[in-house]
Design a protein around this nucleic acid. Sequence first.
RNA 1: GGGCGCUUAGCUCAGUUGGCUAGAGCGCCUGCUUUACACGCAGGAGGUCGGGGGUUCGAGCCCCUCAGCGCCCACCA
Length: 849
Amino acid sequence: MKLAKAYDPNQYEPNIYAMWEEGGAFEPTGVGEPFSIVMPPPNANGNLHMGHALTVNLEDIMARYYRMRGRDVIYIPGADHAGFETWVVYDKILEGQGRNRFDFTREQLYSQVWNFVEQQRGNMELQLRALGVSASWKHLVFTLDKKVIDTVYKTFKKLWDEGLIYRGERIVNYSTKYQTSYADIEVDHKLEKGTLWNIAYPTYDKIGEIIIATTRPETLFGDTAVAVHPDDERYKDLIGTRVLLPLTGREIPIIADEFVDPTFGTGAVKVTPAHDPNDFEMSQRHNLEKIQVIDFDGKMINVPSQFAGLTVDVARKRTLAALEAEELLRGETTIEHSVGYDYKSGLPIQPLIKDQWFLKISTLAKRAKEAIEKNEITFTPESRKRILVQYLDNLRDWNLSRQIPWGIPIPAFQNVDDSNDWIFDERVDEKTISVNGKKYQREEDTLDTWFSSGQWPFITTDAMTNGPLSRFYPNSVMETGVDILDRWVARMIMLGLYNTGKVPFKHVYLHGLILDEKGQKMSKSKGNVVNPMETIAKYGSDALRLGVIANRSAGQNQAFGIDKVMAGRNFCNKLWNIARFAEDRLGSGYRNVIAKPMTIADHWIIRELNNSISDIEKKIESYRFAEASDTIYHTIWDSVADWYIEASKLQDNPTMLAWVMDTILKLAHPFAPFVTETIWQTIPANNKLLISSKWPVKATYDEIAAAEFGRLIKLVDEARYVIADLPGNVRYDLLYQNDSLIADNRLLIQRLAKLKSVQMVDQARGLRLAASGREAWLDISTKTLDEHQTKLEARLKDINALIKSFEARLANDTYVKKAPAELVEETRTQLEQKKAHAERLVNELKILK
RNA sequence: GGGCGCUUAGCUCAGUUGGCUAGAGCGCCUGCUUUACACGCAGGAGGUCGGGGGUUCGAGCCCCUCAGCGCCCACCA
């Protein structure tokens, strides 16, 4: 097969992928030490974005690398029903149809969304294939698969039986837009300026008054007390008395509670148990009534008729106006406070009282913390470990209930005759069940998605049932975004330890966000999203992979630059052209890939590639992917293409060229899987797939020969550098005396340095190549030499500066004594070399004078 | 109120336990129809590593401090 001049990725990628998949290359071999990565499941219903591209590319690099290293690798793909996220999308569709969720039953909605997701699914999986993931499709898990639900229910039951799950009336973060409660973490807190109003509450005898301070006057209808600090002298006499709640005339008590900060506002605070978490807690302590005045749709209830049905904003204005009319406003101040917003709709979150299912978190969190502190799980970057521990320390009980139909139903039923009698039962498809002659009604809420995705590592590997994949639990690495460290990683650790007694994974690698070119977060609303599929169509999948991982360090947010992708595309083309060169030289019959070095270039390239092999191993294994990729790029481009290939044009050694090809294709494969496999397939001797072949091993070489070629490079470099400075575009003769390196490689040096000739002379003349220190001169005229004089002087100045700094270092006794002997020795050698170089330059300049 | 991160070439960023004569990609400048590649070849310019102080033989890296930018967590009305 004759390779085209330029690599066209789109022509090959789909076929290559199909070849891998059909060849079973993604399946674990069952041989070797297990290595496992579970993909954070992308939303089944959406398109992939750049963040996904980064995630799966990093994961796939590890999967391919360890597979080639002989490990028993599984990379398990997934698809997420993305409960609330998907629900928001579907809710919009309903809205567009002029309907809402209350027009349907839970079953109807569930099956509608199921169908909707069904239509979209597959799309995401095709996109993952385009990204080149070597994932085991056979083992793909969808977050609503039966085995997921079964395991989740088992976990729920276990927690229930052990008393860790309870139902309680609590203040929850409520989205009035989507009519569901949120976890604490789903609330966006924004620091903003607000008004603190002082409002007078008349004493019961209407003679005095107590002034409270509040940012939410509209909730006063739900007040059931006024609280002051027990030690506050100002209010001491009022404690235990009653005040009249403005606009209603209802009598409420003045209570004393340590919670109140006497220095804030007026030192007196209204207590609204149904709409404020602190007030709720006070109400528990003081046995206060809870009156809900904001309904789940965000409108006022249980208030005087002129306020009923108003939205919160309008109610606030009217309440203030009414208070004003009654002359109860006592001024206002501006304060900065944090307000919770719905992370989806951007509307304020209403703290509301609701019966919800909670998971007691403290024992789970404590265990997770211990495992992390004992380094049973390690982190890249390491600094995130502390953040996670801190998070676990402050975690409160987890609200598991969501009032959305798209999710896993909570398997709980309530006795219709005894509201306190709840039982666990998995028959969630039935509205009512009867147990022991009693009738039970099902819970209509669903579980928070993170409750099920928090169990992902042991669900996907069937660790609970000891299935064939259970050897892959704990997972080797969990790779995901820093942004879901607490909401996902923390929960996987807690639930993993709880359920299996083992950590769910041994290492956590966290990548940063991909920002747009200006450093802004990519988002649909800003319209700055770069679609990875478009990038692939334009530059190829490998180019995207190389571009997206380039120059990126763990945990660090970084802008996406198309120039890196273009560099990746160019690299693939370089690789392609190296292959074309090899094809020319080797024809189609070579199969011997045992390195048999003959020339000094051969020895040198073995040394270079040997170094790269260990370097890349070290970097991948320590999660420094960008550095590993950079090493491959420069090894192949600089060492192989620019030096070795150029050298082998004159001194060819087919077995070596074959070995070099073999080695670089393997080294580059995890980072550019498509182009390397494409090339591999053009080599007839390779009847196997590259993806399934073994990682390259080092070859033996002669150090002296390798060093010789190193010196040749130095000479050529200097010749090129000097010639580039000389005027015009002239080819010069290189003269030498008594120099076997030059004598043995005359033609090679001539070609590489673009010289007219390389000749041995008795009498030297022209310009000595002073830096490389060889007995070599460029044969240039005195006139040209003269013109070159200032350049020489500038170089001499630089070298003298270096000499001075080396000398100063060596003159320093403590340096010589304290620095490692090796380093001191190196400094001495460098000094000698620079001195010799300077001396040669001085001689050149003398000749000119 | 706590916590974290960033500040290195014109731009986007690397830089592992301190050894640096500070790197990459892109951009820029000068040459090149060299028979694998212009998605290329050869050469080059460009940095007081945010400011100040300290530790050390030696600091981009460690410590203190100041400034600017960004992020996360937190139930103070």
